[in-house]
Design a protein around this nucleic acid. Structure first.
Lengths: 212, 212
DNA sequence: TGCGTATTTGAACGACTGTTCAAATTGTAG
DNA sequence: CTACAATTTGAACAGTCGTTCAAATACGCA
């Protein structure tokens, strides 16, 4: 039974090494040999713990995306007030620097041609994000904070779509400040929900940075 | 001088072949040999007209994206009424079937790591699309059709962002009907501009399909 | 200690990649 | 028709990739 434990640990070490390589070299630059070097093992060992390299890649992307969603959910849970929750989700959802999670998600798009098993991963994360926003909006409606001008499904999905696009822009060379994107989304939310969101500035820049 | 003409024609034939291969096999599956086979020439001929394969790929993606924008601009020009123009842009901007242009755009994201020259391409197309919407909104404001609830830059950029995200979703396995996405965007536009858009149905399904 | 299994190694394989280039072919001007 | 240049060819090269597997090593138990 002890061997089962080390086997899982070995797999996780390899996934961790794959993450690092993918973060630094991109999914396209992630090879068996690069992972083996990063994990300080031989190529044979990598393929000893995974039936093939594709499964290691998939396990890696899967883990990254699940953790991404978990982080989103934790942010949602940390705020009970629906307006604060929306603001926090938006601020964390469009970071100043593109997160490696999102970069990996976008880099995996070309893989979907030959590797359809990635599709449920992406789909699931998007859908669950929509549900996070749906919940927040529903609470706000119940409390009388929000007065949706249209279906809350539409609003929730539009918010996630805005986030997805604005997260992608830095990848394609845009160097506009993410704070502007966040305000664009907040602008939409306030219009669609006929509400006032708390100022995003308080949530941005966890360390210092207030205007003098 | 005649040789200059055929040289350009040869290059265009190779770009055309590259497009077809990329459409059918994806950017990742586009190789010198695949292009050569598609163009019915030898690998040596391909590299005779381009200093290297990267330049052929870049010229191909560049052409596809420029044509994509030109099609957008033509749609914009075809409608003088700002409300009709917005509706037409939205309908054409979120097609039922993912267009090969957009697929190629998203598939090129991973290339940006090693090939930064692609970045201005993407950036430029997005910016010009924002300007198309900006113009339409400005006209509508001047005519008294639109009453923006916030800056028109914000609205125009949000519309393009929504389109970009909703265009990407089919690539990652979503099979929700694009008509729903279009209505989501129209819903946002109507709220943000305090206006009524013409029904999208009339612009959808150029051939038949009206409800009985 | 010794046996047997689990693990690790890395060379080798075949299939691919972009690129090169001598040789063959084609086209054209004199 | 000749001669020269432009073009085309495809084998060959050096590199990468994922995968295999015999051999070597490490480990746990009697």
């Amino acid at each position: 039974m002890a061997q089962q434990k080390t086997r899982i640990q070995r797999r996780e070490a390899l996934i961790s090494a794959t993450r690092k390589v993918a973060r630094e070299s991109g999914l396209a630059g992630t090879s068996v040999r690069a992972v083996a070097a990063e994990a300080a093992v031989s190529v044979g060992s990598v393929l000893y713990y995974f039936p093939n390299f594709d499964e290691l890649m998939f396990a890696t992307v899967e883990g990254v995306m699940e953790e991404f969603y978990e982080r989103r959910r934790a942010i949602s849970d940390a705020h009970t007030d629906p307006r604060a929750r929306l603001a926090a989700l938006i601020v964390a959802g469009v970071p100043d620097e593109i997160s490696s999670d999102l970069r990996m998600a976008y880099e995996s798009i070309p893989l979907l041609r030959q590797q359809p098993q990635y599709k449920p991963l992406h789909r699931s994360v998007v859908e669950r994000q929509v549900m996070l926003y749906r919940s927040a909006i529903e609470i706000g409606v119940a409390l009388g904070d929000f007065h949706p001008t249209t279906g809350i499904d539409v609003i929730a999905r539009n918010i996630v779509a805005l986030e997805d696009a604005y997260d992608m822009y830095p990848l394609i060379g845009f160097d506009l400040p993410a704070a502007g994107y966040r305000r664009n989304i907040a602008s939409y939310v306030q219009t669609a929900l006929a509400c006032e969101l708390p100022p995003l500035e308080a949530l941005e820049q966890p360390a210092g940075g207030a205007a003098g």
